[in-house]
């Protein structure tokens, strides 16, 4: 793969003049924001670049797993913040859910599909794991939001089902179904239009990395299956594990906000 010389990267920088000019001409007021976003990206990427280089150089199991754990924790906080749920009720369930679902699937892929001798290899554990985690995270935000928001809005319906003799699990089943479906929609849509509408990032990466298109599509098929299963697995786990924190012994909904 062709390396980009630092000096050449400045030429890419010239392209930045285009959005700046548009913002200036149309008075979008985005110049400050653009500059800030760009600088932030620059700092983050440089730091992560050095850090990853160190990680790749060491390729130590404990270090890789620690980094993976940190990624999961950041994903958990992101889910809690964006799904507008209570951290105390959601932290442990989503931590467990992500660790189990993404962990199991990435190791499964490394062991059975890629047949790595060393399943904790940073190249696969962190990179593949990151793709799975990012996608599950998005699915979880949608699902958790839909589930608990639906419960709050449809509280009467939930209580009516309890009166019909339902347990908490039975009464929340329609909502659970709806939330899982909703979380899977983007992945299913991406899957169905794959290669035509969206040229997937994983494929682009593999091709730019110097491999042929046939290798690229095999990786893409693998990662799509991984994303779909990790999303379903983690969404179900997060809701099932967190659900009991939202009801008291009589099945009343505990609303904290």
């Amino acid at each position: 793969m062709i390396d980009i010389k630092l000096a050449s990267l400045f030429f890419a920088g010239i392209l930045l003049l285009m959005p700046l000019a548009v913002s200036f001409y149309f008075r979008l007021g985005l110049i400050r924001e653009m500059a800030f976003a760009f600088l932030r990206m620059l700092v983050q990427l440089v730091l992560i670049g050095f850090f990853m280089q160190y990680l790749f150089y060491k390729n130590n199991m404990v270090l890789n797993l620690l980094w993976f754990a940190l990624m999961i924790i950041i994903a958990v906080f992101s889910v809690v913040k964006r799904a507008f749920v209570d951290l105390r009720k959601m932290f442990l369930p989503s931590l467990l859910s992500f660790s189990i679902s993404v962990g199991v699937i990435v190791l499964f892929i490394n062991f059975f599909v890629l047949r790595l001798d060393y399943v904790f290899d940073v190249r696969y554990l962190i990179v593949l794991g990151g793709v799975l985690l990012g996608n599950s995270m998005r699915g979880n935000i949608v699902a958790i939001n839909s589930f608990y928001d639906g419960l709050r809005r449809d509280c009467k319906r939930y209580l009516y089902l309890l009166a019909c003799g339902a347990t908490v699990n039975e009464a929340t089943l329609p909502l659970l179904r709806k939330s899982i479906k909703l979380a899977l929609q983007p992945t299913l849509a991406a899957m169905a239009t794959m290669g035509i509408v969206s040229l997937p990032g994983m494929m682009t990466g593999v091709i730019l990395g110097g491999a042929g298109p046939m290798v690229a599509i095999k990786y893409q098929i693998m990662i799509m299956i991984g994303i779909l299963s990790a999303t379903v697995f983690s969404v179900v786990l997060t809701i099932v594990l967190s659900r009991k924190n939202y009801f008291d012994k009589a099945g009343r909904l505990i609303i904290s906000d």
Binding site: D154, Y160, A163, G165
Partner: peptide, 20 residues
């Protein structure tokens, strides 16, 4: 609180808004 589960299995309820 636990007794209500038993009670709900013995009573049929029709609520004002019919929340089906």
């Amino acid at each position: 609180d636990e007794d209500f589960w038993q009670l709900r299995r013995k009573i049929a309820y029709v609520d004002q808004d019919i929340s089906l």
